[in-house]
Write a protein that binds this DNA or RNA. Structure first.
Lengths: 143, 143
DNA sequence: AACAAATAGTTACCTTAGGTAACTAATATT
DNA sequence: AATATTAGTTACCTAAGGTAACTATTTGTT
C-alpha cells in the first residue's frame, strides 16, 4: 500500500485548517478543542490524564488548560491528592462543547457525502489499527 | 460517521513523529522530504509548482529548497522565463530519495500488516475524496 | 517515623513548521 | 510605453509543541 502516508498527510493540512477556521468562531483552535473534548468524554480529569491520552507533554497541556480557564470554559479544583488538579467543564464549557460538536459533525457529514457506508466504515476502523501498530513499533524513543 | 476526524487526527502525531525519526537518519524531516518527493515524481519544478501542490506558501518552500540545496540534494537552474528557478534533484538527491522511499514503504507495510486488503484499499481511496470535498467546501478564505 | 524516590504541575526557554507584508526583477497586458 | 501580474525573496510573526529544571506533595523503604 505504497503512498498511503502521502495521502494521509495530504489531508492533514486542509482538515486542520478547516477545523481551526470553524472553531475560530468560538475563539478556539483544534489544540484547545482537544482538551475540552477529552474532559467532556472522560469526565473530570487531571493534567496527566490528558497529557497521557494525547501523548502531548505536560507543559503544553498546562498552557492549554490555562487558556481555557481564562475563557471560562474549564474550572480547576484541587484533588484529594493535593498535587493533583481536577479539570472540569464549566456550564459555559458544556454549551460551547455542544455547539462545536454539532458543527464538526456537520462537517464530517458533508465531507463524507459521496463515500459509501462501507468505505467510511473501513476507513474509520483502519485508522486506529494503524495508530496502534505505529505505537507498538515505536521503540524509537522510550527505551 | 461522527468521530472520524478525531480518529484521523489521533493518528497524525504518532505518524509524523515516526516519519521524522526515520528521516532524521538522512538528516531530513517530513517537510523537507515532501519537496524531494514532489520533484522526484513531477520532474524539474518551480517553487510555485511545489507551493501550489501542497498549499504551502512560497516563503516556506523557498526556505525548504534552500536547506535542501545546502545539503546538496537539490540544484537550482534559471528557467527560460528568467523569473523562474527550476528545481532538480542532484544525483545525491536521487540516492537519498531511493533510500528514504524504501524505508517509508517498509514502514507502510509493517503498519498495515494486520489489515485486510479490502480495508486498506477503502482507506486509500477515501482519503483523497475527503480531501477533495474539504477543499471544495472551503470558500472560507479565497473569496 | 524518617528519608529517599516518584509524581503532578509549573516556569522559562527553545524548536519546527508554517504564515503575512512588503519588496525586486521579469514578463504580460492594454 | 505604461500598467498589471507573477516568481521568488527577505524580514518578521505565530501556533503548537518540546526540554530542563524546579516546587510541592505523595509513596516506598528501611
Amino acid at each position: 500500500m505504497q503512498g498511503f502516508f502521502q495521502r494521509f498527510l495530504m489531508l492533514y493540512r486542509p482538515l486542520i485548517s478547516k477545523l481551526n477556521e470553524l472553531l475560530d468562531d468560538y475563539d478556539l483552535s483544534y489544540s484547545l478543542w482537544q482538551v475540552i473534548f477529552y474532559v467532556k468524554n472522560n469526565g473530570p480529569s487531571t493534567l496527566v490524564d490528558i497529557s497521557g491520552h494525547y501523548n502531548i507533554e505536560k507543559p503544553t497541556i498546562t498552557r492549554n488548560v490555562q487558556r481555557l480557564q481564562e475563557k471560562l470554559l474549564l474550572e480547576v479544583v484541587p484533588g484529594k491528592d493535593k498535587r493533583e488538579k481536577i479539570i472540569k467543564l464549566t456550564s459555559r464549557g458544556e454549551e460551547i462543547y455542544k455547539a462545536c460538536r454539532e458543527k464538526i459533525t456537520e462537517l464530517e457529514y458533508k465531507v463524507m457525502m459521496d463515500i459509501t457506508k462501507e468505505e467510511q466504515t473501513a476507513a474509520f476502523d483502519v485508522l486506529p489499527k494503524i495508530r496502534k501498530n505505529l505505537i507498538n513499533i515505536e521503540g524509537g524513543k522510550h527505551e
